[in-house]
Structure formats: C-alpha cells, structure tokens
C-alpha cells in the first residue's frame, strides 16, 4: 500500500524529516507517536503534497505509484486522505457543495458517473448521522463556526464519503472530550477493512484505546526511532519520551 523510504523533507530552510522509512500493508493501522516538533504533522503534509513542504531525498510509493510525482489533488484521487489537525474554515463555500465536488472528483478519477444532487444528499445525510452532526451542517460554510470537536467529526465524515485507500489522521483526538473521541473513533473503526490502511498520528495513548493499532512507531527528530506493537504506546504513556534523551530535547528546542 504505502512505502516510504529514507524520506527527507524541509520547510523553508529547516529540515524536519531526516530519513523516515515506513511500510504499511493493506488493512493495517499504524500509530505514530512522538514529542512535539518531531515531524508528525509534517509527514502528513509532505505525503499530501502541501506547497512549501519540499522533499529533498527519499521515495514514497502509494499503490505502486510514485506519490511524489503527483499533484496534491492527484494524490487524493489515488486514495490518500489526510484528516487535518486544524481544518480550515471556508465561509461562503457550503459543506454540501464542497463535499459533492470532492466526491464527484474522486468518482471521475475512477471513471464513474458523478452523483446527482439527490443521490449525493442521501449519502451525505447518512454520513452526517454516523458522526452525530446535525443535518444543517451540510448547508453551513465549510467548518464555519464549528467547534473543535465538530471540525474533527466533519473530517471523519469526509473520510467516510470519500472512501480512501490510505487515511492519515493527524491528531484527530486533540481537543476532544471523551464523547466526541468515541464518535471519532467509531467513525474510523467503521471504515476499517482489509483494503484500507490507516496512519494514526497522536500525542496521547488515549485514542489508541479506541482505535486499536497493529503497529506503534515513535517518531523523534525526523525519523522513526522505535517500532513495536500496541504495548509500546502504553510504555510511552507511562514513561514519556524522556528515554529518547538528547534526541527529543533537540527536537523540542
């Protein structure tokens, strides 16, 4: 599914990723944890192709294709989905219009007919219910005036509608209370399948109680320094990142 080899990337003049390698097979859930500044969010931005995040070395393949050669929108159409830590508010563009354009762009890329307004509305309503958002959210501007939790649920709703191959969840748990966390986790779990893979980026072990990972990786100073199973997350929760020693402190600085 996803193969990252020796990835180096910089933002402006600062190198953030310093040789990150990771392989994810279909159906697997990988959690990435790590101290602030380790490069967790950068990984999501680099993979999705955000302007200003420059790859200086390494390779990334998604489903056998060279991901780094593709434009942002082409990567999305190849099935890469990034649930943002801080989703953008776009007043004036309704959630409905946004998601319909998006779903139909994906369908077009797969050679399918676009959904009619009525067909889309039906799907959107179901997804809306699944993440416990009131239906009038579809009419409102994209994320406009949504609370932190509503924005995160909106991301999960998009994930459900877009049916991606690889989902990257960037701190989808941050700022959520326990009920909202449950809704987000349920949404994610409902989408788990043998064909779909997940990268769950999180600061805390808590989310992983709800979304059980197959693997846990610790990212520090731009590369993966330790990998293990779910028990690694518990270890981190208990002991923090102090054992990383100099590396973590350097990244925090």
């Amino acid at each position: 599914m996803l193969k990252i080899h020796n990835l180096h990337a910089k933002v402006e003049d600062k190198t953030i990723l310093k040789g990150l390698s990771l392989e994810i097979k279909p159906g697997e859930v990988h959690a990435i944890m790590g101290p602030n500044g380790a490069g967790k969010s950068t990984l999501g931005y680099v993979l999705s192709g955000r302007d200003g995040y420059e790859v200086i070395d390494g390779q990334v393949e998604l489903g056998g294709k060279d991901l780094l050669e593709l434009e942002t929108e082409e990567r999305a159409r190849e099935g890469l989905f990034l649930a943002f830590q801080y989703p953008v508010e776009i007043p004036g563009v309704s959630n409905m219009e946004f998601m319909k354009e998006s779903v139909n762009a994906m369908r077009e890329a797969r050679g399918e007919e676009p959904l009619s307004a009525a067909e889309f509305l039906k799907k959107a309503k179901e997804a809306c219910k699944q993440v416990h958002l009131p239906l009038d959210f579809l009419k409102r501007g994209v994320n406009e005036g949504f609370s932190g939790g509503e924005k995160k649920r909106n991301e999960i709703m998009q994930m459900i509608l877009l049916e991606p191959k690889l989902c990257i969840l960037d701190e989808s748990d941050s700022g959520l209370d326990i009920d909202a966390l449950q809704v987000v986790a349920d949404g994610v779990n409902s989408q788990r399948s043998p064909e779909r893979s997940f990268i769950v980026v999180t600061h805390y072990q808590r989310l992983l109680d709800y979304i059980k990972p197959d693997f846990v990786h610790i990212l520090a100073d731009g590369k993966i320094v330790k990998s293990g199973d779910a028990s690694l997350a518990l270890e981190v929760e208990k002991e923090g990142y102090a054992w990383l020693g100099g590396k973590a402190q350097e990244a925090d600085a």
């Binding site: 999705s48 942002t72 929108e73 990567r75 159409r77 776009i90 946004f98 998006s102 762009a105 877009l162």
Partner: peptide, 19 residues
C-alpha cells in the same frame, strides 16, 4: 484553503472558483 480543497481531490481551477 486552496490546499484543503486540493487535498480532497478537487481540481485547482474548480477550487479557485469555489474559494
């Protein structure tokens, strides 16, 4: 905002119109 729309597979020209 442009990046957000692109990351959902919407083409650049369509995203510009929407935004």
């Amino acid at each position: 905002a442009l990046y957000y729309l692109l990351s959902r597979g919407i083409s650049r020209s369509q995203a510009l119109i929407m935004l």
